[in-house]
């Protein structure tokens, strides 16, 4: 009897192993495109940049190994690094929640079958399409400038404005408003997420007499949580890496008050020819991003609901 069980166990084990191997192969097969790209084109350059971060590398001549010097310099003797950290944190914590809330709000507004909704969606997506060309930088500066449309509107209400972009006090807030304005991409993702929620759930809830507010909290939010999670992670990472707004519009100024981390990094790399230092900055940014992302992933277990795993 015992003998039998042992044999059975071994057979099961080897069956299990075989089926696991099969699964491995299938899985690797599916992710093969990415794996090839990752190993062929991503890992190498990433590790090279890690190597650069331990060198003195001016882009144009051979890197010279200097150990941890870049990192030491950064943490002990670089005011602008700390300034950039501060600015970037304010930017991320100011813009991400606002942008997501606004995007969700607009997505809900457009998640109907009313006439003209397709056109509205397009209109509201326009600011995001405009992106980061030179032309657009001029538009934003114009809009928030002393003689711009924002001040015209404020003047209508009797408030006298300033040059929002050039003001040391308001420049950063202006950039935050600007990225909130470009809420198009999370909005679209929310919209796609909303569309994927089975309509029957709402029908059943209505039958049970749940009002729209209850429906929102009991159905919409949980069903949308994978997408909220995605947007939160991506917007946080994008926030930390934000570059264009500051680079094109305020050029980091006035007085470094909009010095985004990525802008500082860029300046080091391509204006000051200090690619070694820039690489070190990049890896510190990666660590910061990773910490926050890991934190979001940790908490996800308690608030993200997956239909596919819901049954378990």
């Amino acid at each position: 009897m015992a003998q039998e069980m042992k044999v059975e166990g071994r057979v099961q084990k080897s069956n299990k192993l075989r089926s696991q191997l099969r699964t491995d192969l299938i899985g690797l097969g599916f992710i093969a495109p990415w794996l090839v790209g990752f190993l062929g084109f991503i890992v190498g350059p990433m590790l090279v940049s890690l190597y650069f971060s331990f060198t003195n590398y001016d882009l144009l001549s051979t890197p010279v190994w200097i150990g941890l010097e870049n990192y030491v310099q950064m943490f002990t003797n670089d005011d602008r690094f700390w300034k950039a950290i501060r600015v970037t944190f304010i930017f991320v914590f100011g813009s991400v929640p606002l942008k997501l809330a606004f995007a969700l709000f607009v997505a809900m507004l457009f998640n109907t079958k009313r006439r003209g909704v397709g056109l509205y969606r397009t209109l509201y997506y326009v600011p995001s399409i405009l992106g980061g060309s030179v032309a657009i930088a001029v538009v934003w500066k114009q809009l928030f400038g002393m003689n711009g449309a924002i001040n015209d509107v404020l003047g209508f209400f009797g408030i006298s404005g300033t040059d929002w972009v050039a003001s040391p006090d308001f420049a950063l807030s202006t950039l935050i408003i600007l990225v909130v304005w470009q809420f198009g991409s999370p909005m679209l993702i929310f919209l796609a997420g909303l569309k994927a929620i089975p309509y029957e759930l709402y029908e059943a809830a209505s039958v049970d007499g749940a009002n729209p507010v209850v429906q929102f909290f009991k159905i919409t939010l949980p069903m949308l949580s994978p997408v909220i999670f995605f947007n939160l992670v991506m917007q946080t990472i994008h926030g930390f890496m934000a570059f264009t707004q500051s680079f094109l519009i305020t050029e980091g100024g006035p007085m470094d008050n909009t010095l985004f981390y990525a802008v500082y990094l860029y300046e080091k790399a391509f204006a000051h020819f200090d690619m070694g230092y820039a690489s070190a900055l990049a890896w510190v940014l990666l660590l910061i991003c990773a910490l926050f992302t890991a934190f979001i992933f940790r908490t996800a277990k308690s608030w993200v609901y997956y239909e596919s795993e819901g049954g378990n």
Partner: peptide
């Protein structure tokens, strides 16, 4: 592959993928 197939090393590879998002392009 990542969402539905339960292969080994799924999680570490997924982490690798997410991490590549976090390195600014300027340095690569």
């Amino acid at each position: 592959g990542f969402a539905r197939v339960n292969f080994r090393f799924r999680t570490p590879l997924f982490v690798c993928m997410i991490v590549t998002l976090m390195l600014p392009q300027q340095v690569t």
